[in-house]
Amino acid sequence: MTVIDQWTGRHAHALRAAMRQTNEAFAEHLGVSARTVAKWRERPEMVPSPQLQEALDTSLNLAPPDARARFTANLGAEEPPPTLDDSVLGQLHAAVGDLARVLARITTST
């Protein structure tokens, strides 16, 4: 699950969208004004108050799994990149070596 150390307007907006709520419904859910929720979209760098940080933590923790998955996707952090095993790393290393040799030939022949 995605953990947010410090919520910003970008994170809060992503959670609202992931929960598929309107600004008004999300504001009511958090106990804030709809204008506050709208500001998060307008000012993604904005950092909500500590009380709202806690409310957003709680909302994310209580969100259904599909909403949490959408939240992570909305932030552009769907899955960590796959790890490369030794055989793939060996192939990449060989390819880089081949490329370096080709480039060396091209630069010496011109």
Results as ranks from 00 to 15, higher is better:
82 P>M: 15
57 D>S: 15
5 D>H: 06
27 A>I: 07
80 P>G: 08
52 L>T: 14
109 S>T: 12
107 T>K: 12
21 Q>R: 07
21 Q>N: 05
46 M>D: 11
69 A>D: 13
84 L>D: 14
14 A>H: 05
43 R>A: 07
29 H>L: 10
55 A>D: 03
11 H>D: 04
77 A>C: 12
38 A>S: 12
60 L>E: 05
105 R>S: 04
44 P>K: 08
101 R>F: 00
59 S>N: 09
53 Q>F: 07
77 A>T: 02
53 Q>I: 08
27 A>H: 03
104 A>K: 01
25 A>T: 14
78 E>C: 00
32 V>L: 06
104 A>D: 11
106 I>T: 07
4 I>G: 02
24 E>F: 06
5 D>C: 01
80 P>N: 08
68 R>S: 15
47 V>P: 04
100 A>W: 02
51 Q>N: 11
9 G>E: 10
35 R>N: 08
20 R>P: 03
107 T>G: 02
24 E>N: 07
67 A>S: 08
62 L>H: 12
26 F>A: 13
58 T>Y: 13
36 T>H: 09
37 V>E: 04
61 N>W: 08
85 D>K: 12
42 E>Y: 11
27 A>E: 06
86 D>L: 10
74 N>G: 09
56 L>K: 03
85 D>W: 02
36 T>S: 14
104 A>C: 01
